[in-house]
Design a binder for these strands. Structure first.
Length: 581
RNA sequence: GCUCCUGUAGUUCAAUGGAUAGAACAUUGGUCUCCGGAACCGAAGAUCUGGGUUCGACUCCCAGCGGGAGCGCCA
């Protein structure tokens, strides 16, 4: 027999349909099924309470009527509790069936496919060229990559686009400094990006005080945007230097983009934006700039969205509008997800409102637009880490330190391991720790950067999850079996530990769904950690290598399924696993 | 000034309006002839304040207090 991957909708539908044939109910009834606290059962429906209240009926009596009308099943038992909760408890036999059917790698990925896959553009990472990525830049890259994987896993077509900030004000400052100091970009030493960043920092400090320099820097930018050959050549070189420093980081993080179409790519498309918005009278001139107001909005009725500066130059808003239309026209994007810092919320809200009006006027369908924003990484002073004046920790340094610390641990636990293997494992463990540290908390919260937090390897961390995976591999090596075997002799789970681990396994679809619905990977982290904890507890209580074939097969099955879910889940977070660590 | 976000154990974080608010770190007591101790089992410890809505509130609404962000030519 076949069971469904995600059981929650099955219970929800069962309750809804049963209720429709009963006197006291109608189509407004929502069963509100959810996973239950293990003290009460596996799934719980609370919907009778509010429904009964509204209908002026006794909730317990109404719930009892519904329970009595449910068709009998060998898969679960049901009972009524408290003021009117309906609790379902799955039978051991059914748990075993579900795990046998859905617990393997291939079954998990097949089962997770969406019925209505979409074409989604994911805009993430998006660093500014000419500057280094520092620890504050880690979030967009890691969160974006995880969301890309989560959506792709469910069958959506994902286009990963790194929207580089490569056409902005920083170039005016930088070009001025390069020319004045007669610097050769071919001769910047071992760490060219650091040299460029120094130049930028100095230049930025200077234009704050020197108005003449500020005007010159602006002029350099205008010349660049007008296509001045010398500036363009320098700009290209800067871009190349930046890209090679980014690529080093992306390689470590295992992030690959389909496109890196920066703002500069859209430089010839900004006129279309001005014309399109002007034609439909969506924008207006104000103080010499071209701006958009949204009279229906309480704030944006007065707070302008500037799409062309008074000096005629384009800005972030202009290129974002051009980018949006390009993605819709060239890629037929059905959804566009922007992963950026929360401080840009106003910008995106204005962008989305403006795009909606423009598309409506042109009678085009606007893709679903989502701003997936995250909190800021703060320094010890509780202020955002920023490049302009201070010297924040470089992202590459964080990643390398993580690998170094992990390598120390690997060596300590495996004395005679070849250096190459130490490094391979250290990468998986160290980078996993960093990624998990960021992904495991709600993305909307700010946090203060801390080495200890980013590099922790005990407790609720990636290495703990990786450790569970490695232990399971170890068991299978010892029994000389494969996790891909079928465990046909398995009996249903009996003991407390077996049962708890089993029920945890079948909540994976719920965690995945929640992470997807809210585009928040931390729901997945929480689930995986709970699963690993449940496994460790099981592992401690129930020996796997035993003579009883039925119990042994069940326990092997539980181990194999746990590993499949952990590996799959970690992969969705962009975190790799090891056979041994 | 206007708008938005935020306030949970000592610390860092969880909790689709549901039953006794979960963890981790730190503190502390155990487990060590155990398939990997990056582990397991236990103890202690928390919802900023005051109202309101609700059968039920960390969650929703109002007010206050604290922290942070955005608000015309940065991205």
């Amino acid at each position: 027999m076949s069971t469904s991957f995600d059981l929650l909708p099955s219970f929800d539908e069962l309750l809804y349909h049963t209720a429709q044939s009963l006197d006291g109910f109608n189509e407004d009834f929502d069963p509100q099924t959810r996973s239950a606290d293990e003290r009460f059962g596996d799934f719980q429906a609370n919907g009778v309470l509010p429904f009964a209240k509204k209908a002026g009926k006794n909730p317990r009596e109404l719930a009892q009527i519904l329970i009595d009308a449910l068709p009998p099943s060998e898969n679960w038992t049901v009972d009524l509790a408290g003021p009117g909760f309906i609790n379902f408890t799955l039978t051991p036999k059914f748990l075993l069936e579900w795990i046998s059917e859905h617990g393997s790698d291939s079954a998990i990925s097949n089962s997770a496919h969406s019925e209505s896959p979409k074409k989604v553009v994911l805009d993430y990472s998006s660093p500014n060229t000419a500057k280094q990525m520092h620890v504050g830049h880690i979030r967009s890259t890691i969160i974006g990559e995880s969301i890309a994987r989560i959506l792709a896993f469910q069958g959506n077509e994902i286009i990963r686009d790194n929207h580089l900030g490569d056409w902005g004000t920083q170039f005016g400052i930088l070009l001025l400094a390069i020319k004045e100091q007669k610097i050769s970009l071919d001769d910047l030493g071992d760490d060219p990006i650091a040299q460029l960043e120094d130049l930028y920092r100095q230049g930025n400090a200077r234009i704050k005080e020197d108005e003449v320099a500020l005007a010159k820097a602006r002029q350099e930018l205008v010349q660049l945007q007008d296509g001045d050959p010398e500036n363009l050549q320098l700009w290209e070189k800067i871009r190349d230097i930046s890209m090679s420093s980014f690529l080093k980081i992306y390689e470590l993080l295992d992030v690959k983009f389909d496109h890196s179409l920066g703002e500069s790519f859209y430089r010839d498309q900004v006129d279309e934006v001005y014309q399109g918005l002007s034609k439909h009278k969506i924008c207006q001139e104000d103080d010499g700039a071209l701006v958009v107001f949204h009279p229906e909005h309480k704030r944006f009725a007065k707070q302008p969205f500037i799409i062309r500066k008074s000096d005629g130059a384009s800005n972030y808003a202009t290129t974002d509008l051009a980018t949006l239309t390009y993605r819709q026209k060239e890629w037929q994007a059905e959804q566009i997800i922007y992963v950026t810092d929360g401080r840009q919320r106003d910008h995106f809200e204005q962008l989305f409102l403006t795009a909606q009006k423009w598309f409506d006027a042109d009678k085009k369908t606007l893709p679903t637009l989502s701003h997936v924003w995250f909190g800021t990484i703060l320094g010890d002073d509780n202020k955002a880490i920023k490049t302009r004046d201070g010297q924040p920790i470089k992202l590459i340094d964080l990643l390398e330190e993580a690998i170094r610390r992990a390598a120390d641990m690997v060596k300590q636990k495996n004395k005679d391991l070849p250096e190459e293997e130490v490094q391979r494992r250290a990468k998986v463990i160290g980078l996993g720790a960093v990624k998990y540290a960021d992904l495991s908390q709600d993305r909307t919260l700010d946090y203060v950067f801390s080495w200890d937090k980013m590099l922790a390897m005990q407790g609720n961390t990636a290495p703990y999850l990786q450790y569970a995976v490695a232990r399971i591999s170890s068991i299978f090596r010892k029994v000389e079996r494969s996790t891909e075997d079928s465990f046909t002799h398995a009996r249903p789970p009996e003991s407390d530990a077996e049962r708890k681990l089993s029920r945890k396994l079948l909540f994976f679809p719920l965690a995945l769904k929640q992470a997807t619905r809210e585009l928040k990977p931390h729901f997945l982290c929480t689930y995986l950690y709970e699963l690993a904890t449940e496994f460790s507890s099981f592992y401690n209580q129930e020996k796997v290598m035993i003579d009883d074939v039925k119990a042994k097969d069940l326990r092997l099955l539980l181990c194999a399924s746990t590993q499949s879910v952990l590996k799959t889940g970690l992969n969705l977070l962009g975190i790799d696993t090891l056979e041994e660590m």
